[in-house]
Amino acid sequence: MQARVLLIRTAGTNCDRELAFAFERAGARVEEEHLLALRERPQRIREVDLVALPGGFTYGDDLGAGRILALELRRYLGDALGEHHERGGSLFGVCNGFQALVRAGLLPDLEGIHATLTWNRNHRFECRWVRLRVEAGLGHVLPAGSLLPAPVAHAEGRLVFRERGAPARLEEEGRIAFRYVDARGEPVEDWPACPNGSTAAIAGLVSASGRIVGLMPHPERNLSPAHLPDSRPGRWGDGTEGLAFFRGLLQPYGAGSPA
């Protein structure tokens, strides 16, 4: 059986091409739909296993990254997405998609915790490769403790919580998916290994169900050794980690044969 993935795009979505390719490489059948079309036919979501929100600058990120998209998702597709999740479907957001999931209140999915993805500590857009460590919360997708190198490319990726004890609670409840780590594998909050200054070095979150996943960096841009800043083995992984991640996301739905 081949997993089915639906990419939602709208004005300003701009990482849909590479995300579609990554899911295809991982074995999925990928379709793309404009949010306005989906609004007319939300039942389309019933036909798929995983709904993905690609990166970009939806609506220019005016009023805050992913904010208008989050409002639209809740308003137009809230019920359909809720039902999709109820019956075992997955929801995945990368970069702007992750920002929308957080703004829509779908992540970190923990009562009493208020999170936002706000401006990087240096208040600049930054594009560079980082090393991500897979945390316990995402152990069902990739081996916990393994590394996933990927580039970041964002201005608003610093995860901040209203509650001081939030990181510890998230850790406890297994809601942390990825952390930024340095070359020795240690989590860091500081530039450059963590370009945005995210609290507790958190780069990605996962829901209680394990089926809502979001992260700031772009694993879909690491699909071959030629993508790496240094392709010599061992420096930045070996160029297979990105694909392994997408296969892991599709695993519950029968990934099919890789394209």
Partner: peptide, 15 residues
């Protein structure tokens, strides 16, 4: 250069 997304579209090999 760091302020430009030089990786978007996933086609950038030599950076």
């Amino acid at each position: 250069v760091r302020q430009y997304d030089h990786e978007v579209q996933g086609g950038t090999l030599l950076k």
